[in-house]
Simulated scan of single mutants.
Amino acid sequence: MEIPAAYQSLRTHLQARVPLSDDDFAVFQQYLRLQTLNKREHLLQTGEPCTHLAFVTQGCLRSYSLNTQGQEHTLQFAPEDWWVSDMYSLLTQQPSTMNIDALEDSQVLLLAQADMETIYAHFPVFERYFRLLMQSRFVALQERVNASLSQTASEKYQHFLRKYPGIAQRVPQHFIASYLGITPESLSRVRRQL
């Protein structure tokens, strides 16, 4: 049976990280739901419970929070081949404190949190995959915190370009500045210097 392109991109992603049989993926695929998002459409909004992990097969999403003055703070960009979610809300079942929206017309595969334990119990390969994913995300989070405390604006931007190759041409500069924790004017200066 031929696998639709959106599902094939996830299968390729998984197989690059863990050994995966055709049968395992066929069962896993049954737990996934394909969703299309238009540019600026939200996948998740503050106050809603987060019930899914989303794997981006096409487009680019962004997670962000709002401070009390309504200023946006970009937490993550999720281009193709990335997962995005509000892990705090997903794991604690508390209302989300962040928003996730599409920066481009996008397509995601949704995996319900409620199905994850079933998948883990029957398919240890997926428990291994998601453990590796969480470890990687924890390391990235620690790097980001350390960078925000110790790196210059120029160093932060150069690290961003390495982490998200190609994204600088796809998303508005003010979102990148928000991600870096600097003003758009500071980002313009850094880009001119580089």
Rank of each mutant, 00 (worst) to 15 (best):
I3E: 04
P4G: 04
Y7F: 12
Q8P: 03
Q8A: 13
L10Q: 00
L10C: 07
T12M: 12
T12C: 08
H13L: 12
H13P: 02
L14C: 15
A16E: 15
V18L: 04
D23S: 14
D23L: 08
V27T: 14
Q29T: 06
L32G: 00
Q35E: 12
N38Q: 14
E41N: 02
H42P: 01
T46N: 11
E48L: 07
P49Q: 15
T51N: 10
H52S: 05
A54C: 09
Q58K: 15
G59D: 03
C60D: 06
C60F: 05
L61P: 00
L61D: 02
S63I: 06
S63Q: 12
Y64C: 13
S65Y: 07
L66T: 09
G70M: 09
E72R: 14
T74G: 08
L75T: 08
Q76M: 12
Q76F: 08
F77N: 04
E80W: 04
D81Q: 15
W82D: 05
W82G: 02
W83Y: 13
Y88G: 08
P95W: 09
P95S: 09
T97N: 15
A102Q: 03
L103C: 12
E104N: 09
E104A: 10
D105W: 07
S106V: 06
Q107H: 07
V108F: 03
L110M: 11
A112W: 01
Q113L: 05
A114I: 07
A114L: 06
D115P: 00
D115V: 03
D115E: 09
M116S: 06
E117Y: 11
T118K: 13
A121K: 15
H122W: 08
F126K: 00
E127S: 11
R128V: 06
R128H: 13
L132V: 04
L133T: 06
Q135S: 15
Q135F: 13
R137H: 11
